[in-house]
């Protein structure tokens, strides 16, 4: 089943075109890796899918399970199952991680027509997932991402992904800032969420992550377009030769 279908997408910021005719099809159960040089528009694409304001879609469309995603509020997209693990997760002082997780989870469950979790159910679930990601309990009592290290912030993103059970996960450089052990823990957390109903888009600069999370497809993005698609071996090729060959192709 096709989860995400992007056709001839054009996106601009302040009248500068950043996504310039991008196509992408993602089916349930698949893992797609997107690689590409800095500034090629990878994060922009992920933001547009998640619904961040400030981008102007000047052409094309994004369908999620056949529905027009661009017509939906960001929270509706989240409730439908779109999840973005941010390249730069923000800090929210004064809102404890626990309170945030509970508020967000219940908002999504409500929108999906499911009942709220009871407190014990919720606590049990959070603690289980936190433990599997090596997230200490006292971190959950702190403000969202406040004073978290780069790696801790990334683990917190995966914690949310595991709790919200989305059907499309977009992971924007989830490997940046992770040490070797953390990379393994986070990758195994992500792999644990792979399922025939769920698709993932993994944005990364490094083959190392794809060694753990083996993709079905690899796409090269350059100057706002997908300029080449292939299997997992394309990532190895990129690692060896760089992006030089595609820069001109775009």
């Amino acid at each position: 089943m096709t989860l995400l279908e992007i056709r001839d997408l054009h996106v601009g910021v302040d009248s500068r075109e950043i996504i310039r005719g991008l196509d992408l099809m993602v089916n349930a159960g698949e893992v797609h890796a997107i690689m590409g040089p800095n500034g090629s528009g990878k994060s922009t694409l992920s933001h547009v899918i998640a619904g961040k304001p400030g981008y102007e879609v000047t052409g094309g469309q994004i369908l999620f399970r056949g529905e027009d995603l661009l017509e939906m509020e960001p929270n509706e997209r989240a409730a439908k199952g779109v999840f973005l693990a941010f390249q730069y997760p923000v800090e929210i002082p004064g809102v404890t991680t626990m309170n945030f997780l509970r508020t967000a989870l219940n908002a999504q469950r409500k929108a999906r027509g499911r009942g709220e979790f009871s407190t014990p159910e919720f606590l049990k679930k959070v603690r289980e997932v936190a433990e599997s990601l090596n997230i200490p309990r006292d971190m959950l009592k702190r403000g969202v991402n406040v004073g978290f290290s780069g790696g801790e912030k990334k683990r917190n993103e995966i914690l949310q992904m595991a709790l919200f059970e989305p059907s499309l996960c977009i992971l924007d450089e989830i490997d940046s800032g992770l040490d070797i052990d953390a990379l393994r823990i986070v990758a195994s957390g992500i792999n644990g969420l792979r399922s025939p109903e769920r698709a993932m888009i993994v944005i990364t600069h490094y083959q190392r992550l794809l060694h753990y999370i083996v993709p079905d497809y690899v796409h090269v993005m350059s100057k706002g377009r997908v300029v080449k698609s292939g299997g997992k071996e394309l990532a190895l090729e990129l690692e060896a030769c760089g992006y030089g060959q595609f820069e001109t192709a775009a």
Partner: peptide
């Protein structure tokens, strides 16, 4: 960030104002 996690714009604002 909060909206992407499922909160409506008003609820997101409210949570931040409360904090």
């Amino acid at each position: 960030y909060l909206r992407a996690r499922g909160l409506s714009e008003k609820d997101a604002q409210m949570l931040l104002i409360k904090a």
